[in-house]
Design a binder for these strands. Structure first.
Lengths: 215, 215, 215, 215
DNA sequence: AATGAATGAGGCTTCATTCAT
DNA sequence: TATGAATGAAGCCTCATTCAT
């Protein structure tokens, strides 16, 4: 039989991956059988296995995809000019994405990947890249803003980046557990908090914890 | 053996739960077989099943325990007097806990529970309680601080609480993926950010989002 | 501790056997766990095992009991004087017993024993005795009636006994499957049939099948 | 393997059912493990479960099959013309079947089903149908014979049918417990008894039970 | 004697993967 | 290439029985 075109193969692969996303997002890895993916993708067992070596490999590919997406989201946001703009763009880009149904589905899948990473070395490696690359991008951007004098120097850019990512991830969880979580309110609060943090006492020295305490 | 004391039963239960925590934290729910828990607990199959009805029930009990712990952590912190103290205590309590090995293990388990909640209604219910109760406690504390004039009124107490929780959860993830994540730096940054947020523009009016955006 | 009296032991044994009858009749052997018998008997695991060596042994003892009862039922009926009286007494004794709730329960148990006998040599031996002894008693009684001139000689006493027993067993099944089966009607029909059979053409030669066919 | 024909599927199903009959007839339901059926059928665990959902379902299907066979046996016999012919055909058909090894095996299985019915609602329903349908067929046939003047009207057709079925079932038991039970003798006796019953006192009035009792 | 906690072999079933067609 | 029937290891759990107290 004739070899099928690469495009055809790609389409099939997508078909499988989309089916897998659907199933995994809904039921997690354990509860999703290959049979579910097969049914959802309208393909046959054999077909699936001619595109992916195993269920685990599908998971790994999906992890890779998510990581790519995350990186691009950060990358895109950081193309904006000027400091606070970058940050605001990032926050809104991120938060906006939580409103789209497709993205929400993938975020659920993402959570399963976060847990999977804890006991699957391959996935852990992918997740680490998926967190570290955005982290570095962000960290570098913050560093640059500091260099440009838009930001207090006392802030450790790396840690600041971590905090931002933590905020995002943390909210992804809350939204997954309660789909009515108020994204807009959260967005606003994060914007405010981050602004306050980055701009606090920009005129002189940073606020010291002790001072705050005794106020 | 004849009737044993309640203490004995409790000890056995703990033995099983601890074994389960060990296994689940290390390998997740799927990869942990009852056999693993049996081996780790030094008990027999039957013994386990005379204390718990099923693997799922063990998971649920562990979820309940985590939720309780989380609530108590928040409750304890909020017993401090005065506003910023409460908050700082909470942050340090939380971050300190991430340094203890036992707690780290349980946090890993916690992440597995977060994912499990997405496709296990019972666990979801438990997790929701486990998030909502601390959220309310925190929210109420913030509200009280606002009432006492220690905090800007523009902040929505509920959302602020959400943001804090998100920060914590988000960092738990980072630490799980990279056990060398710098807890101290994170702690400091969170303290600073939160202080900045809650006290921002205390000298005049709060920064408005619109202003920030258009800057 | 003091050795308990034989009476006490007997009572305990009965307690266990009654509990077992209850459970086995209701749920069969497989579905009845030792735990069920323990609960129903209000004794402890250990107690049960100090009176019986195993679940199988309980079954065997119960089989023995049933067999005894069955034998006595036949024996008692055959004490009547004169031929048809014996038979009628037997039939009514048997059918009457099907009206009592206790007996019905034991009959259900009996059915389980019938099946058990097919794959449990010990029970098979007991059941065989339980069928053969009544069979012989009956057969001998029929033979005697023939000798006394009350019955046609052409009838094979052994087979006739078999037929009677088959009628009884067969109806026990029907009643077990449908507790509203009409015992009275069945009794009457059996009486009539048996009478017809035993007395048919008592004046001369037996009816030949061929004749019946061509009539 | 690619899609296989329906015939192939049917053959496989039969293969499994035959293996199950073999095992169940020999050892009963409890003592037969899926492993036994798997070995006996020369298939794999998975194969079995792709044809049947559970061990219980196999039992139910077998119960259905038996019920069908039983019904057909009666139906076929009742196609004969004329009254006593029908009956004699039925009796010989039934008794002949007890001579075939295959049928004897299935009869053993049948006994296990009779017991199973007592504590398995699904099987009970099937067994009831399996008894009631032949019962009705027979009852109707007897009624018709009465209408045609071939039979005494005093007989309750329904009860008479019950008696016949009871005779058959009862003998199935005896044969299962003692494979040397004399089928031919039993057959003859049943034929005679039934003939005597149905034609008794055809010369005058039927014998009344009361008379028999008081004789 | 009595208790009931503990044991662990064995039961039923699932499901990722293979491979004949 | 594509199909889906077949495989069988491994999983969760039950339950008759034992034995320390």
């Amino acid at each position: 039989m004739p070899k099928v075109s690469q495009t055809h193969r790609d389409n099939r692969k997508r078909q499988i991956l989309d089916a897998a996303i659907e199933c995994f997002a809904r039921q997690g890895f354990q509860r999703t059988g290959m049979e579910d993916i097969i049914r959802e993708s309208n393909l046959s067992t054999g077909a699936i296995y001619s595109y992916f070596q195993s269920k685990d490999q599908i998971i790994e590919v999906l992890a890779d995809e998510r990581h790519d997406r995350e990186k691009h989201l950060v990358q895109d946001a950081l193309t904006a000019e000027g400091w606070p703009e970058c940050l605001h763009l990032l926050i809104s880009r991120f938060c906006d994405s939580l409103q789209e149904s497709r993205e929400r589905k993938e975020r659920r899948l993402g959570i399963h990947l976060w847990a999977e990473a804890l006991c699957n070395p391959k996935v852990l490696r992918i997740i680490r890249r998926g967190v570290n690359q955005p982290l570095e991008l962000l960290s570098r951007a913050i560093g640059k803003a500091q260099g440009d004098g838009h930001l207090r120097k006392e802030i450790d850019s790396n840690t600041a980046a971590r905090v931002l990512i933590a905020l995002f991830h943390g909210f992804v969880l809350q939204q997954a557990w309660d789909e009515h979580a108020d994204v807009a309110a959260f967005t606003k609060a994060v914007q405010a908090m981050v602004d306050a943090y980055f701009s606090a006492v920009s005129k002189g020295r940073p606020v010291k914890i002790r001072e705050l305490r005794s106020r």
